[in-house]
């Protein structure tokens, strides 16, 4: 493996548009870096913010949320809800010390395989530039913030 940092991205796709865009990128043999791993949801509205936190907590360096274009959600308008959660999540992550650029939202219709591949490639490079997140390092096995707990122990000690 090369010396350069290889980030790992988790991508959330919706069953109707962006997952199909990923399929189309495949059938059209469009190339993108292997740094992303996709999870299929029925709709971007299914995206529980906890999924994103979970991905970071498991060691992901970036998370890509994808869904149908506004107005094209298979369930009418659930992607607007995903959009709201995304905006909130970015702020929350920032407060947790995670660069908001590590989370990105992209709309991709079932016909936009090339676009999705392009967005993935761009994001991989962006996250590569940010460097590793290594968030799990911050948590101890009880699920507490390691540094905070250490401090707490010091105080009680």
């Amino acid at each position: 493996m090369s010396e350069q940092f290889e980030p790992i991205l988790v991508g959330f796709t919706c069953n109707w548009c962006s997952y199909r865009a990923a399929d189309l990128a495949g059938t059209a043999r469009v190339k993108y870096p292997p740094n992303i791993r996709l999870v299929r949801l029925m709709c971007s509205g299914r995206l529980d913010p906890a999924f994103v936190i979970k991905a970071f907590a498991e060691g992901a360096d970036g998370v890509l949320i994808t869904g149908c274009h506004p107005g094209e959600c298979h369930y009418l308008e659930q992607n607007y809800k995903a959009l709201r959660r995304y905006l909130l999540l970015r702020r929350t992550l920032e407060q947790m010390g995670v660069e908001p650029e590590r989370l990105k939202l992209v709309w991709a219709s079932a016909a936009e395989g090339v676009k999705l591949a392009h967005e993935i490639s761009t994001m991989v490079e962006e996250v590569r530039a940010l460097g590793p997140l290594d968030w799990p390092r911050w948590w101890n096995e009880n699920g507490f913030h390691a540094v905070v707990e250490e401090q707490a122990q010091e105080v009680t000690a």
Binding site: I8, N35, V39, A50, F51, P132
Partner: peptide, 17 residues
């Protein structure tokens, strides 16, 4: 979904990490 994410992250480019 949580389990899938855990599984996906089981293999790393930098295995040592």
């Amino acid at each position: 979904i949580f389990a899938q994410i855990e599984g996906l992250m089981r293999v790393n480019f930098q295995h040592e990490k």
